[in-house]
Each structure stands twice: as structure tokens, then as C-alpha cells.
Design a protein around this nucleic acid. Structure first.
Length: 261
DNA sequence: ATGGTAGGAGCCCTA
């Protein structure tokens, strides 16, 4: 059995103390980070190594994006793909000794206007997810787990107001269609919603909303999916809402799951 | 219809 967590950290260097606190308190076997905003060589690996996280597979760039997989189980680099040819560090994969492959994604946020004719970034987001769909269709993933900040909240109960967010990037029908097509192409099972099927569930609250806890205008942007052959092994999903209230928090909180593999 | 906050780089971009 192992546990896996995904967390958009919004600067791994600034929030090194939060990462070490989380690793100490929760002790996931694998932690997938997004928005590290750091070249790989400047990620504070020694602090993580001191807590037993001896392995890291990462892709980075200065200032933007960046994905890393920290692990206290041995992992090897399983490559990356430049979805939508953006030249961004938004995907990396690692392989455990038991053959399970972990994909860590940071899907583009997509800008403010949900129209690719007037907002290039929205088109890039749709293209990115369409290429994920094509890759999953071609690869037919098995013994695989995919996690990350997908920047799309697919279900009505993944947002604070379905009606008010229908034209807000992250919950528009075209984005949801793209995401569900990618999920379907790989046969991926949404482990978080398999375990927590009912009710409002969020992993992100904007920095711009003070009083985030009371207002609770959240969205579920962070996901853990499993290939269909191992979906039954996934269980014990959690979303650590309380961490949004930590000092100098990320605007995202960790999502966790366990796998009996 | 608007503005609200945060991080990194470096006087503006992205989220």
C-alpha cells in the first residue's frame, strides 16, 4: 500500500516550510507538486531528503510552471510530454519499482475570457487537454495514476455555484467536455469522487476572496485518477481543506488517496 | 461591470 498526494504549491521555494510541515504531519509516500516556479536545480531537495524523501523526478523553468514528484519509495524518471507545444514544464512521469506509472500534470489556467478567438490562452488550454486525450487514446494506460492541477472543475458540485460559473474559465461546458473526453480516452476513474461521491468538494479558493472559509467560493481543480485496471485499489481519498488556513498558504490544498498495490 | 490578492522577475506577466 502507498499513499499519494497532489498539491499546487505556488512556489516551492517560498513554501518550503509548508511542504516540510505537510510531509512531517501526513507522511504521504509520494507528493506531486505543481507550480514550483523554480528551475529543478533550485528546488530545496535537501530539506525533503532529510524527511526521507530521497527521490525526486522534476521538470522546471524560471518563474513559471514546474512539476515535481517527491517520493520516499524508489522512482525512476518516465519522461515528459510538451502538450500543445508550449515549451512549458507542465508534465512529468515517474515509475515505481512495482511498475506503476505516476503522471503529474499542470494544465494551463486558460486566462480570463472563455473564447479562443479573443484569448489565445484559452485555446492553448483546450489544445493541451485535447492532446492529453489523444495521448491517452494512443497509450491505453494500465497500472497508471494521473494527478495534478487540471484547472477544470467538471461536476456541478465541484464549484460553489454551477450556474454562476458556467461562463467562468474552469467550469465552462467546452472545458468540461474536453476533460471528460480525456478521462474517457484513458478509461480513467476519478478516485476522489469514487470515494467521496456526494456533496460540494473544493481544492482551491481564490486569494482575492478574503474570508475564504466563510464565503467558501471554492472549486475542485485538483484531481487523482487511476487507470481502470487498478481503480479498485484506490481508496481513502481526502482533501485537506484546513491547510488553506495555514500561514502564507497556497491557494490550493492537497488531495490524497491510498492504493493497495 | 468591477476589483479584489499573490508570486516572481525586475518596472509586467501569470494565476
Amino acid at each position: 500500500m502507498f499513499t499519494i498526494a497532489t498539491w499546487n504549491i505556488n512556489s516551492v521555494r517560498l513554501r518550503e516550510p509548508l511542504v516540510t510541515r505537510f510531509l512531517s504531519e501526513e507522511g504521504p509516500d509520494i507528493l506531486c507538486l505543481q507550480e514550483c516556479k523554480s528551475p529543478v536545480e533550485k528546488i530545496p531537495v535537501e530539506a525533503f531528503r532529510a524527511l526521507g524523501y530521497r527521490w525526486m523526478v522534476a521538470r522546471g523553468q524560471k518563474g513559471y510552471n514546474g512539476v515535481a514528484i517527491l517520493s520516499r519509495l524508489p522512482i525512476e524518471d518516465a519522461g515528459d510530454r510538451d502538450y500543445a507545444s508550449l515549451g512549458h514544464a507542465r508534465h512529468v512521469a515517474a515509475r515505481l519499482e512495482n511498475g506503476v506509472v505516476i503522471h503529474n500534470f499542470y494544465v494551463p489556467a486558460g486566462g480570463d475570457v472563455p473564447d479562443r478567438e479573443v484569448n489565445v490562452k484559452f485555446g492553448q488550454k483546450l489544445d493541451f487537454v485535447a492532446e492529453m486525450r489523444d495521448a491517452f487514446h494512443a497509450d491505453n494506460p494500465t497500472r497508471s495514476i494521473m494527478v495534478g492541477d487540471l484547472n477544470i472543475a467538471p461536476r456541478e458540485d465541484d464549484v460553489w455555484s454551477h450556474k454562476q460559473l458556467l461562463k467562468v474559465v474552469s467550469h465552462t461546458p467546452v472545458e468540461v467536455d474536453h476533460l471528460l473526453s480525456a478521462q474517457d480516452a484513458g478509461g480513467w476513474v476519478d478516485i476522489t469522487r469514487k470515494d467521496i461521491p456526494d456533496g460540494q468538494l473544493y481544492s482551491w479558493w481564490s486569494y482575492r476572496s478574503p474570508d475564504w472559509d466563510v464565503a467558501d467560493k471554492g472549486r475542485r481543480l485538483d484531481h487523482i485518477w487511476a487507470s481502470p485496471d487498478i481503480a479498485n485499489a484506490g481508496h481513502a481519498s481526502r482533501v485537506l481543506r484546513g491547510m488553506r488556513g495555514w500561514e502564507r498558504p497556497s491557494d490550493h490544498v492537497p488531495v490524497l488517496a491510498s492504493f493497495d498495490l
